[in-house]
Amino acid sequence: MADAGGEGIGVNYGTKGNNLPTPEQVVGLYKSRNIGKLRLFDPNPNVLNALHGSGIQVIVGTTNIVPHAGSVTFRCVSIGNEIIPSDVAQYIAPAMQNVDRALKAAQVTAPVSTAVSMSVMGPSPRPSVGVFSDVAAPTMSAVISFLAANSYPLLLNAYPYYAYDPKYMKLDYVLLNSTTVIVHDGNLGYTNMLHAMVDTVYTAMEKVGGQKVEVVLSETGWPSGGGPAVATVEYAKIHNNNAVRLAANPNGTPKRPGKGLETYLFAMFNENLKNEGTEQHYGLYYPDMNEVYHVDFP
Rank of each mutant, 00 (worst) to 15 (best):
M1C: 01
E7M: 15
I9H: 00
V11Q: 07
G14L: 05
K16F: 05
P23E: 08
P23R: 13
Q25F: 08
V26M: 05
V26A: 02
V27W: 11
R33K: 11
R39W: 02
P45Q: 11
V47G: 06
V47L: 12
L51C: 08
H52T: 08
G53A: 00
I59D: 04
V66K: 04
S71Y: 04
R75W: 12
S78N: 09
D87F: 14
V88M: 04
V88N: 06
Y91S: 00
Y91N: 01
I92E: 00
A95I: 12
A102L: 01
L103P: 13
V108Y: 13
T114Q: 10
V116S: 01
S119T: 15
G122N: 10
G122I: 12
R126K: 15
V131W: 08
F132R: 15
F132Q: 04
S133L: 04
S133I: 09
P138M: 00
T139K: 02
M140Y: 12
V143S: 01
S145N: 09
L147S: 07
L147R: 08
L156M: 10
Y159R: 10
P160D: 04
A163T: 13
A163C: 06
K170D: 07
L171G: 01
Y173P: 00
V174T: 10
L175M: 03
N177Y: 14
N177G: 00
V183P: 01
N187S: 08
V198C: 01
T200V: 12
V201K: 15
A204K: 08
A204M: 14
G210V: 14
V233W: 03
Y235R: 09
K237P: 05
N242R: 11
L246F: 14
G260S: 04
T263H: 00
L265Q: 08
L265H: 10
L265S: 06
A267D: 15
F269P: 06
N270C: 05
E271F: 10
N272I: 07
T278E: 12
L284M: 06
Y286A: 08
Y286N: 05
D288N: 10
E291Y: 03
V292W: 10
Y293H: 06
H294R: 13
V295T: 12
P298C: 05
